[in-house]
């Protein structure tokens, strides 16, 4: 049996409310809160970045897996906000966690699906027999341009998954990826903020790639949506995952547990992965989980997980993601937020 042997999430303590951002730019708060189902989002502290978030998420995964970090053969971090343009984030993470130095490390990038890429490659290494454990992480401190629609959603957080074949808590039964050249969202080298194709981001990008990957996954597995206890989709806003779930035949009840976006925002590479941790935090042995990510550009990675008896042992070994979402929140006003996110020009 191959799959997740330890998982963990991390969300920063800082928050900003969507209505605070809307008021700043003279927009109608209700169109964001009711229209997009976005109420507040996480904001990284001034001393937090993709690396610190990945380290904290991976520490929680190690607390659950209770394995020797030295046995981890590969570490992959997927993000679109790696702090260095040249120097892989994982180099710092392995030293922080006592992994390696005999370890394979790489940074992944694919807009919001870089995290599931890291998970997929980590899983494949274990499946091939190349190594005993591999760590895949999705983490981001994403940025939206001031006043842009993305500013309501772009948030910070991440999740880490240790793949292995002993004491598996969620077995991976099937995977499927779907990719095409779709310019819905991009950021050119050297630009501070991403650009997006407005309405072009919906049907031809998000909905097409998730439904195609999802349909293929259902065909491969010969399962139907009602066989699943939970479903997790990439969460750019509150509306999209519910809508794409409905198109594939899933219900609100199946999606709700992993639907963190209204209070977390879009953690980009950490989006569907943190949603998956919310599901694993409460899942019971035998539950089937359907998950499809989405990354602009564009592509989707799909997974089907079956939860095992081991899940009961690991759930309480580390903080749960809903706890992180609800406790110890510190709210920022727009000025503080702009300073935290370095949107203010300073004299260097």
């Amino acid at each position: 049996m191959i799959g997740i042997v330890g998982y963990g999430a991390y969300l920063p303590h800082y928050r900003i409310k969507a209505e605070v951002i809307a008021t700043q730019w003279g927009a109608d708060p209700a169109s964001v809160t009711r229209g997009l189902q976005l109420f507040e989002k996480t904001v990284p502290g001034q001393d937090e970045d993709t690396i610190t978030i990945a380290v904290e998420a991976a520490r929680n995964a190690l607390r659950r897996a209770q394995i020797d970090p030295q046995e981890i053969g590969a570490v992959y971090i997927g993000s679109e906000s790696h702090p260095y343009a040249v120097k892989p984030s994982g180099t710092i993470l392995v030293d922080a966690l006592g992994i390696g130095p005999h370890v394979h490390v790489a940074s992944y990038e694919f807009a919001c699906k870089a995290g599931t890429e890291a998970m997929y490659v980590a899983y494949s290494h274990v499946k091939s027999g190349e190594m005993r454990y591999a760590l895949g992480i999705g983490a981001d401190t994403s940025q939206g341009a001031p006043g842009d629609a993305l500013e309501y959603s772009a948030s910070a957080g991440g999740a880490a998954f240790i793949m292995g074949r002993e004491k598996v808590v969620a077995e991976i039964l099937h995977t499927h990826s779907y990719t095409s050249d779709t310019p819905d969202f991009w950021r050119r080298e050297g630009e501070d903020y991403p650009r997006h194709g407005g309405r072009f981001t919906g049907d031809p990008a998000y909905f097409k790639h998730i439904t195609e990957a999802g349909k293929a996954l259902l065909e491969k597995s010969k399962l139907s949506p009602r066989d699943f206890r939970y479903a997790v989709f990439h969460m750019p806003n509150g509306k999209f995952p519910m809508e794409v779930g409905k198109r594939l035949g899933f219900t609100k009840e199946q999606i709700e547990t992993g639907w963190l976006v209204p209070w977390m925002g879009n953690t980009y590479s950490g989006s569907s992965p943190t949603g998956l941790t919310a599901v694993l935090d409460v899942a019971r042995p035998g539950d089937l989980i359907f998950m499809v990510s989405f990354g602009s550009g564009a592509g989707s990675d799909g997974f089907i997980f079956r939860v095992t008896d081991e899940i009961n042992k690991v759930q309480d070994r580390a903080p749960k993601v809903r706890q992180m979402l609800d406790e110890k929140k510190i709210y920022l006003n727009y000025g503080e937020y702009a300073k935290f996110r370095r949107k203010i020009k300073l004299n260097e």
Binding site: G45, D47, E48, D49, I51, T52, V55, E56, R59, P83, Y84, A96, E348
Partner: peptide, 14 residues
């Protein structure tokens, strides 16, 4: 917790 402690200007190491 693991945090960024300082940075060597805009272009230096973290």
């Amino acid at each position: 917790v693991f945090r960024r402690v300082q940075e060597d200007g805009r272009a230096g190491i973290l």
